[in-house]
């Protein structure tokens, strides 16, 4: 008697579990996709934390919404676009490279290029100044003659 009952209960349990899982769970690939997208979406009530790392209720709800959209077959751009349309581009941890945001991406590159250009021109100028001041050594030689005389006098003893 116990054998068939046990089997039936196990079957029912498996059915309930699979139903519960089917409602919320994603395939490993979908879950990986959801996590990857979630890592680029900022928790709106935190400081620079993606929704995948925030325990806040809002982040968890946003992650659930994101998972549902992944299951519905929406693309990465569609999903990030959905959140950006509601929370603004500031919700994206990887801001789109367009409009004013281009300054963020191009600014440092332009800064580095300008910096290198300025440094090289500055070095060129200082080198040119250094070579231009080479004749300065000649008076030094003249001075050296004078120094030699002074030293000679000193070595011969001070004139009393």
């Amino acid at each position: 008697m116990q054998g068939p009952w046990r089997g039936l209960i196990a079957l029912l349990l498996a059915l309930v579990c699979s139903l519960a899982l089917a409602q919320t769970s994603l395939s490993p690939t979908q879950e990986a996709q959801a996590q990857a997208i979630g890592r680029t979406i900022r928790c709106p009530v935190c400081q620079g934390l993606p929704i995948t790392e925030s325990p806040s209720e809002l982040s968890q709800s946003m992650l659930r919404e994101l998972r549902e959209q992944v299951v519905a077959g929406r693309s990465r751009d569609q999903i990030t676009g959905y959140f950006a349309a509601r929370y603004g581009d500031t919700v994206l941890l990887d801001p789109p490279r367009r409009g004013v945001n281009l300054l963020l991406w191009l600014g440092p590159i332009a800064g580095a290029v300008l910096g290198v250009w300025w440094l090289s021109s500055y070095l060129k100028r200082t080198r040119a100044a250094a070579t231009a001041s080479v004749p300065d050594t000649e008076p030094e030689e003249e001075q050296d003659d004078y120094l030699a005389r002074v030293r000679a006098e000193v070595s011969h003893g001070r004139p009393s």
Binding site: S61, M62, R64, A85, Y87, G88
Partner: peptide
């Protein structure tokens, strides 16, 4: 479930 709040971008 905050569905409507998220749909309106409420934070």
């Amino acid at each position: 479930n905050l569905d409507t709040s998220i749909a309106y971008g409420v934070s």
